[in-house]
């Protein structure tokens, strides 16, 4: 087991090094100098040079790469060119929006998807199954930003129950903040719930075809008891894998929804960083996301190792 973990750790470290190189090279290739962008059309060349020096943009690419990696190893993610505040602070502030939003969306989608998927599987081929399949198809097909705009029109402009967007900040109270995240979370959750419900349905159907289900029915268990006691637990495993994937998507991929609801989240920070050539923010946030995904994969690998002894010997 130890050697298995060690080999996974080496793979983790190698992936991180490769990822950091790829990110650095890609960002190096992006045209556009941050300093001249910040100073605009009328800046004199010596002013741009002064700002470049102030931002620490000098040095050869390998030098800058090592400085960046060295800083990150010591927990220093650099200072944003545009905001002039440490990137770590910016990311923490943005995570205070993105993380709760992702959790809310995920909870919502799971709470909807699991019962709905189970229901559809138990009514296989019937009108209930047909309508669930139809609705979830629609849920996957409709872009979430369009759905978000419809939510805004109904609940913000017409009914005035919610604001059209924005985020007051957690220090203004938990309730106003949760309220501000409700519509975005619903908009994010719906397509995810549709996918998840379909996965849930097919997973349950597959389990229902297994021998042990027939055995359970044969020993006299009711349909419902078979479903909840035997099928559900086993059917949840592929669903959990999808939930894991969805979570990392929700953290980084909520950018369009963040734009529709003008939420100060992580996705918008990266987007803004790209347009304003705040390259250090882009580099560091992307690297952080890569690290998070690789770490999750690593933990999953380890968990598989515990669950399935055959994997350890490989």
């Amino acid at each position: 087991m130890l050697s298995y973990i060690l080999s996974r750790l080496v793979a983790l470290a190698l992936s991180l090094v490769v990822a950091s190189l790829v990110i650095f090279v890609m960002i190096e290739m992006v045209p556009g100098d941050p300093a001249s962008f910040m100073l605009g059309l009328n800046a004199a060349p010596d002013t741009v040079a002064a700002l470049r020096a102030e931002l620490g943009l000098g040095g050869s690419p390998p030098e800058r790469y090592l400085r960046w990696i060295g800083g990150m190893l010591q927990g220093d993610f650099g200072t944003s060119y545009t905001y002039r505040t440490p990137v770590a602070e910016l990311v923490t502030a943005r995570l205070a929006v993105s993380l709760p939003l992702a959790v809310m969306a995920l909870l919502l989608s799971t709470l909807i998807a699991i019962p709905v998927g189970l229901y559809a599987a138990s009514r296989r081929g019937g009108p209930g199954d047909w309508s669930v399949m139809g609705l979830t198809q629609l849920g996957i097909a409709v872009p979430n930003f369009w759905f978000a705009m419809i939510l805004v029109v109904i609940f913000a402009i017409q009914l005035r129950w919610f604001s059209a967007g924005g985020f007051p900040g957690w220090d203004q109270g938990v309730w106003p903040s949760l309220k501000a995240l409700t519509l975005p979370a619903v908009a994010l959750a719906l397509p995810q719930a549709s996918i998840l419900a379909r996965v849930m349905r097919s997973s349950v159907l597959e389990v229902l075809g297994q021998d042990y289900i027939r055995t359970a029915r044969a020993k006299g268990l009711s349909r419902r008891r078979t479903l909840t006691d035997h099928a559900l637990r086993n059917a949840l495993i592929p669903v959990l894998t999808i939930i894991g994937l969805q979570f990392s998507f929700l953290i980084a991929g909520a950018i369009i929804i963040e734009n529709v609801f003008f939420l100060p989240g992580l996705g918008r920070l990266v987007f803004q960083g790209i347009t304003q050539r705040d390259l250090i923010v882009v580099e560091s946030v992307v690297m952080l996301l890569v690290f998070a995904v690789i770490l999750v994969n690593f933990l999953v690998d380890i968990a598989y190792g515990f669950a399935d002894p055959r994997l350890r010997r490989r």
Binding site: M149, R160, A164, N259, V260, F262
Partner: peptide, 9 residues
Amino acid sequence: TAAFAAMMA
């Protein structure tokens, strides 16, 4: 579009 919605709301 968000600006429009925020103004209207």
